[in-house]
Amino acid sequence: MDVFMKGLSKAKEGVVAAAEKTKQGVAEAAGKTKEGVLYVGSKTKEGVVHGVATVAEKTKEQVTNVGGAVVTGVTAVAQKTVEGAGSIAAATGFVKKDQLGKNEEGAPQEGILEDMPVDPDNEAYEMPSEEGYQDYEPEA
């Protein structure tokens, strides 16, 4: 019985440690998101679009440190934060509304985080759909 109880105690310690790591990862992701939003706020009209992409990228980098179902929630929060940063930029006159959601080359930025393969159960990952990809044929 002692062996059984000791095993359960060790398992509990492992769960607590994993929860603490997840909590730490979420806190880091939130900190990076805040950094990115402050970065966007300090940019001029020309830099705002690039700044919004930076927020998304920093958040995406930190999301990889967070495991399990938390990833889905962090990704949703990050996307809403990026959308909010863009709205703030438009409201303050840093950028025109028609410039939001495009990178410096004018290509749409939507789907940055949505296409990231995420499995809350950590069982399997699927690649994003290939609808947006084109076949590449090298020139002879």
Rank of each mutant, 00 (worst) to 15 (best):
H50E: 06
Q134P: 12
E57K: 08
Y39H: 05
E20M: 09
V63Y: 11
S129K: 04
Q109H: 10
T81W: 05
S87W: 15
G106I: 12
E126C: 14
A56F: 15
G25Q: 15
Y39P: 00
G132W: 11
G93S: 06
A30R: 02
I88M: 09
T22H: 02
A29L: 08
Q99D: 11
L8D: 00
K96S: 10
K97F: 02
L38R: 12
V95I: 14
E20S: 03
Q109W: 06
V15C: 06
E123W: 12
A56T: 08
E20W: 07
E123L: 10
T75F: 11
V77T: 03
D121V: 04
Q99H: 13
V66T: 03
E35Y: 14
F4P: 00
E123T: 08
Q134H: 04
A29C: 10
L8W: 12
Q109G: 03
G31C: 01
F4Q: 00
E131D: 10
E139V: 11
P108E: 14
T54C: 14
D135K: 05
K21E: 00
E130P: 11
P117F: 04
L8I: 04
L38P: 00
A89H: 04
K97C: 12
K10L: 14
Q134E: 05
I112R: 07
V70Y: 03
A29H: 02
D121Y: 12
E126K: 10
E20I: 11
S87H: 13
V48D: 00
G51E: 01
P120D: 06
K80M: 09
A91W: 11
E131K: 07
T92E: 04
A90K: 06
E13R: 07
A78K: 04
E61V: 07
E28V: 12
M1P: 00
P128G: 05
A76I: 14
G7N: 13
A30H: 02
E110Y: 12
E61P: 02
K43E: 01
K45G: 03
D115A: 13
K34Q: 02
L100H: 03
K60L: 12
P108G: 02
S87D: 09
T44P: 01
D135G: 05
V55N: 00
V63E: 01
K45H: 02
G14M: 15
V77G: 03
V40E: 00
T33N: 00
